[in-house]
Simulated assay, not measured.
Amino acid sequence: MTAGTGIGSMPGDTDAAHAEAVRLVLGELPDLPHVPEVPGRGAWASMTARGLAVLDGLAADLQPAGWRLTDVSGVDHRRARSLLAQDLDTVEELAQGYAGTFKTQVAGPWTLAATVEKPRGDKVLSDHGARRELAQALAEGVRVHLADLRRRLGGVDRWIVQVDEPALAAVVDGQVPTASGYGRHRSVDLPEASAHLEWVVTAISEAGGEAWVHSCAPRTPWSLVAGTGAHGLSADLDVLGPADLDVFAEALEAGRTAALGVVPSLDPATDVSDARLTERVQRWLEMLGLDPELVGARLAVTPSCGLAGATPQWAARAVRLSATVARNL
C-alpha cells in the first residue's frame, strides 16, 4: 500500500509547536509517521545542529559564522543535544502504543561538510581528512541514535532513517562557497562522494534500519545515491531530469522505494486538489512504463520539501494531502 509521509521540518518557533506537529503526523500519517523537526526555534534546532547532535566522538560549538568543530562541546552543542533528547521524549510520550513503521531524519555527511567549519575556519569540505572523520563520526552516531529510538518506541518494527543531502549537488558540482565568499570549493570526486554517503547508509542497515536519501535540490546525482545501496530515494518530482527518471524507475523495478514530493511545501497561490496530485503521480508512472498496481507498495507520497516555511494551516493541509493522495493511489 502506498504511504503518505512528511519530509521532516514543520513550521513554528516553540516547543509547543513541536508537540502539536507530533500529534499531527501521528494522527494524519498513520502508515508512516515521522519525527518532526521545528527549526524555527533557533540555531540549536536547525538541520545542521540536529546532525551535529548525533555525531559520535566529535564536538562542536556555534560561532558568529556558524557551526564549527571544536575540541570540547560548547554550550550551543550541548543545547542542541538536549533539545533533540527533549523532542524524542515528546515523541516517545505521544506515540506510546504505536506499532508499525516510523521515520526519522538526519543531515547527511556532505551537507554537514558543506555547512560546518573546521576548528581553524573554512568548511570541513575543504579538508580531505576532516570530511572523512566527520562522515565516520556521523555513521557511528547514527547507530547509537537508532538504538535510542528502538528503546524509546519498542512497538516500531521498521525504522526508516532519511539522510538529508540538499548540498550534495553543490558539493559534486564545485558550487559550495569558500569562507570569503569570492571562490568555490573544489568539486569532490564521485567515488569519494559515494563512499562517504555509503558509510552512513551501511551503518543504518547494519543497525537494523532502512536508509532513504532525500534531496529536493536540482542536479542531485541520483545515480550516485542509488549506488550507495540506499533503499529509498526521496525527491521533489519537479526537479528530476530525464536521467533521474531512469534511476527512479530502475530503483522501483529493483524493489526499492521512491518517495515522490508532489504536494507544495509552501502555501500555493491557487487551490490544490488531491485528485490532480493523484493524476500527476499516475502520469509519471505511465511515462516510466510502470504499473501502479505492481509498484504501489513501493511508493511514498510527500510534500516537495520540508514545511518549515509554510503557514501552520498549509502545513497541516499538506500533511493531509500527502496521506489522501497515497490512499487514492
Rank of each mutant, 00 (worst) to 15 (best):
Ser322Val: 07
Gln175His: 08
Leu134Glu: 07
Val239Phe: 11
Pro268Leu: 02
Ala3Arg: 15
Pro191Gly: 04
Ala258Asn: 00
Arg81Asn: 05
Leu197Thr: 04
Pro221Gln: 06
Pro292Ser: 07
Leu83Arg: 11
Leu260Val: 14
His145Glu: 14
Arg23Ile: 02
Leu277Tyr: 11
Glu28Ser: 15
Met10Ala: 13
Ala310Tyr: 13
Gly155Ser: 06
Asp189Ser: 07
Gly229Glu: 00
Gln313Asn: 00
Leu190Asn: 02
His231Leu: 14
Glu28Cys: 14
Leu299Thr: 07
Gln136Val: 11
Leu112Arg: 04
Thr70Met: 01
Thr228Pro: 05
Trp159Tyr: 10
Ala139Arg: 11
Ala308Phe: 02
Arg280Trp: 07
Ser215Ala: 03
Ser82Thr: 13
Glu253Ala: 15
Gly141Gln: 10
Val75Asn: 09
Asp238Glu: 14
Trp222Glu: 04
Tyr98Lys: 03
Ala139Gly: 09
Gly42Arg: 10
Ala235Lys: 00
Gly306Arg: 02
Thr302Pro: 01
Leu52Arg: 11
Ala235Ile: 00
Leu125Trp: 13
Gly100Thr: 02
Thr2Met: 09
Gly229Asp: 00
Trp67Tyr: 06
Asp157Thr: 15
Ser9Ile: 00
Gly229Val: 00
Ser234Met: 10
Gly306Gln: 02
Val239Tyr: 06
Arg132Trp: 09
Leu112Asn: 02
Ala49Arg: 08
Arg219Ser: 12
Asp271Tyr: 04
Leu83Ala: 12
Leu266Trp: 04
His196Arg: 15
Glu286Trp: 00
Met287Trp: 05
Ala235Asp: 01
Gly57Leu: 03
Ala60Met: 12
Ser194Gly: 14
Arg131Lys: 11
Ala65Asp: 13
Leu299Ala: 09
Ser205Asn: 03
Asp61Tyr: 06
Glu165Ile: 01
Ile204His: 04
Gly181Ser: 03
Thr2Ala: 10
Gly129Leu: 02
Pro312Glu: 08
Ala60Tyr: 09
Gly154Trp: 07
Lys123Gly: 12
Ser187Cys: 02
Glu286His: 06
Leu69Glu: 06
Trp222Val: 05
Ile160Asp: 05
Thr202Asp: 15
Ser223Cys: 00
Met1Ile: 04
Ala217Val: 06
Ala193Cys: 07
Glu293Ser: 10
His77Gln: 13
Leu138His: 09
Phe102Trp: 15
His77Asp: 14
Val144Ile: 12
Pro11Glu: 13
His128Lys: 05
Glu192Ile: 13
Ala243Tyr: 05
Ser223Tyr: 00
Glu133Thr: 15
Leu224Ser: 03
Trp314Ile: 08
Gly97Ser: 08
Asp61Gln: 11
Ala269Glu: 15
Leu134Gly: 08
Gln86Asp: 13
Val188Ile: 14
Asp15Ile: 06
